[in-house]
């Protein structure tokens, strides 16, 4: 063992700063936030240092479960995650199929589809707020096209607002899904298509029996990468809805910054962490470890 360390001492020395950083700024905070979530609220204004004394309480978690606000935030998070994931997958797949040909024009146009990916999420939030306000541009266009008779109040809460956030997220993220799927489609051996054509298969049949099954690994990759991010959604709901509609992320933030309640904030952060971890574990169980690390 000692000899091993000596032999690799340069490598270890090289990687040490990274590991130390991750330890201090990622794993330690996780431990702290968990401890914090079980700590009784301090009487004074200052937060007691985590891990001091034998204080242990489930009060913050009870607090959370009895808060209608949190239950709503939980529901919102899950709803938005599934809705946006479904939208992004179907749109991403359509775009990918549309753009998978390698002609000159398409290669020229493809970057335009990828453009939203480069727009900072906060800017997307700002952009979408112009689009979705009652006097906003979406209503204006819809009214002009006579799709609707009276403006839709996207920001009035409820399912409409959830849909709005999902759409906003979708605008930004569909290109990423498209890129992943496009890479998958282009890695399929084109001679398979030729063989199927010779065997007399039609376009839809080819899509169903060749493209889709061979694309499955890419689809799962897209789902997991996007799934994690969908649970962590933060900037868009905060900018678009603020206090009026919370997801777990913004709930935890507002609980801390607006209501100065770090304990409950910590508890909800822990719950979000558990949600994501269980989703990932579920994924690993179903798909296996190979799907996580790109080869």
């Amino acid at each position: 063992m000692l000899e091993h360390i000596k032999k690799h001492r340069y490598k270890i020395l090289c990687i040490a700063p990274l590991l130390i950083f991750l330890l201090i700024f990622t794993f330690l905070p996780i431990a702290q936030v968990i401890i914090l979530s079980f700590q009784p609220a301090a009487k004074t204004d200052s937060v007691t240092p985590p891990g001091s004394g034998d204080n242990f309480t489930l009060a913050h978690y009870q607090d959370l479960f009895f808060q209608k606000d949190f239950r709503q935030a939980f529901f919102n998070t899950v709803f938005i995650a599934f809705l946006s994931l479904a939208l992004e997958l179907s749109l991403g797949l359509s775009f990918a199929l549309l753009l998978c040909k390698n002609s000159k024009i398409i290669r020229f146009l493809r970057p335009l589809f990828i453009l939203p990916l480069a727009i900072p999420t906060t800017v997307v939030g700002v952009m979408m707020s112009y689009l979705f306000t009652a006097s906003g541009w979406l209503n204006r266009i819809f009214l002009n096209l006579r799709i609707i008779d009276s403006p839709i109040y996207w920001m009035s809460g409820g399912v409409k607002s959830l849909l709005m956030i999902a759409l906003a997220d979708c605008w930004k993220v569909t290109p990423l899904v498209m890129l992943i799927l496009l890479a998958g489609i282009q890695s399929i051996d084109t001679s398979l298509y030729k063989a199927a054509r010779i065997d007399g298969a039609g376009s839809f049949y080819i899509f169903k029996r060749i493209t889709l099954p061979l694309l499955l690994p890419s689809i799962t990759a897209a789902v997991i990468i996007r799934g994690i991010d969908a649970f962590r959604i933060f900037a868009l709901p905060l900018i678009l809805m603020g206090q009026n509609l919370k997801v777990i992320g913004t709930f935890a933030y507002l609980e801390y910054s607006e209501f100065n309640n770090p304990y409950v904030s910590a508890a909800s952060a822990v719950l979000l962490l558990i949600m994501i971890l269980s989703a990932v574990l579920f994924y690993i169980k179903v798909v296996g470890k190979k799907g996580i690390v790109p080869a």
Binding site: P29, V33, L36, I228, A266, L272
Partner: peptide, 26 residues
């Protein structure tokens, strides 16, 4: 190599809010 990449990748799954809160306090 695989194990280290996995550890590093795992850190990406952690929601920022659960790190942001304790480090803000510190």
């Amino acid at each position: 190599k695989y194990a280290l990449i996995l550890v590093i990748f795992m850190t990406r799954m952690i929601p920022e809010i659960s790190i942001a809160l304790p480090i803000t306090i510190s």
